[in-house]
């Protein structure tokens, strides 16, 4: 059986989760199976230099664009799936993967399971552990091969990076597919971190949906100032326009690793945890004792966050006046 591990890279940087996809495929490959890495993008050299843990690499090489639209990625992958007849296709849960996985599933008719944390193989079927309801529920699923899985970043340890033998690399020209694509890339905006760079912040106070309203952000901001911390928000807070996008932590925001991460009213959806679970010290305050944030917190409290902010602010103010 062939297992296709979908990989990604932009701006001459291979995404680390690409190596996780290869590792996931490798973890259930049996004797005689072949792990085939699929890469679409400009950095064909980077892919060849990194994906040695795969048995074979198929590169759809672009020459101009830094970002391949998912629509084009899916067309290229479809051709590979048709040619290779794999038993399993592993797609990362990424901006690209969100468009690619179900597209392939719809066009092949193959079953798809998303948000996958664990895979076990039993011959022609798999048992899967997937996350639902913002990480509050785990689903044990069963699926017959061939199938498609969309894998959570961080669920599998990266395969060791290393070069793949030139003889095991097959290169396709992606340009004709890009040229006929229905989705054309027109611009990439990389944020200007002149004012705020959460990725280098030593201390962060992050507010989540539990903060309730925009006016209450100021309370958290004052606390952050007292702690010498940057204020940050989870996705619902930023989507509501209460904090600017540059201050968002998580999958579609920044990945941070501060010395102190104080989470106020943050439930800890998997997409948020992906951005902050590596912080040195995580303190979480949430009235819901089952909030997933407590699974990564070093200290947790279930008191009302406004009472806590008031009490903590009083003590810090008193302390600084000493």
């Amino acid at each position: 059986m062939k297992l296709i591990a979908c990989t990604e890279g932009h701006s001459s940087k291979i995404e680390a989760f690409s190596l996780e996809m290869i590792a996931a495929a490798r973890s259930i490959a049996q004797a005689g199976d072949e792990v085939v890495a699929f890469f679409a993008g400009r950095d064909a050299e980077g892919a060849s230099a990194s994906f040695g843990a795969a048995d074979r690499l198929i590169v759809a090489r672009a020459t101009k664009l830094d970002v391949i639209p998912a629509e084009t990625y899916a067309v290229l992958l479809r051709d590979v799936v048709t040619a290779e007849s794999p038993g399993l296709v592993l797609v990362p849960y990424s901006a690209n993967g969100l468009d690619v996985a179900a597209d392939i599933a719809a066009r092949t008719g193959w079953p798809l399971i998303s948000y996958v944390n664990e895979i076990k193989r039993h011959g022609e079927s798999l048992t899967i552990v997937a996350q639902m309801y913002g990480g509050k529920v785990l689903a044990d699923c069963e699926v017959q091969l061939p199938a498609i899985l969309m894998i959570n970043p961080g669920a599998f340890a990266e395969a060791a990076p290393g070069p793949i033998a030139a003889a095991s690399v097959q290169t396709i020209d992606a340009e004709p597919t890009l040229a006929s694509g229905k989705v054309r890339m027109v611009a990439i905006d990389v944020p200007d971190y002149a004012d705020v760079d959460l990725t280098t912040a030593e201390r962060i106070v992050c507010v989540g949906r539990g903060i309730g309203d925009e006016a209450s952000i100021d309370l958290a901001r004052n606390l952050a100032t007292m702690l010498g911390a940057e204020i940050a928000g989870s996705r619902p807070v930023v989507d509501n326009g209460w904090l600017p996008k540059l201050r968002q932590v998580g999958k579609s925001g920044q990945k941070v690793k501060p010395k102190l991460y104080l989470a106020l009213g943050v439930s800890g959806a998997p997409e948020h945890l992906e951005g902050m679970s590596q912080a040195d010290l995580i303190i979480a305050v949430n009235t819901d004792p089952k909030a997933p944030i407590f699974n990564v917190a070093h200290y947790g409290a279930t008191c009302d966050l406004f009472d806590l902010v008031a009490n903590l602010s009083d003590r810090l103010r008193a302390g600084s006046g000493r």
Partner: peptide, 20 residues
């Protein structure tokens, strides 16, 4: 694909509960 069972994740990790 099919869901066989749902379960709640094991709580807690190793963090210390400071109470309410």
């Amino acid at each position: 694909a099919e869901i066989i069972t749902l379960r709640l994740p094991v709580q807690g990790g190793s963090g210390e509960n400071l109470g309410g």
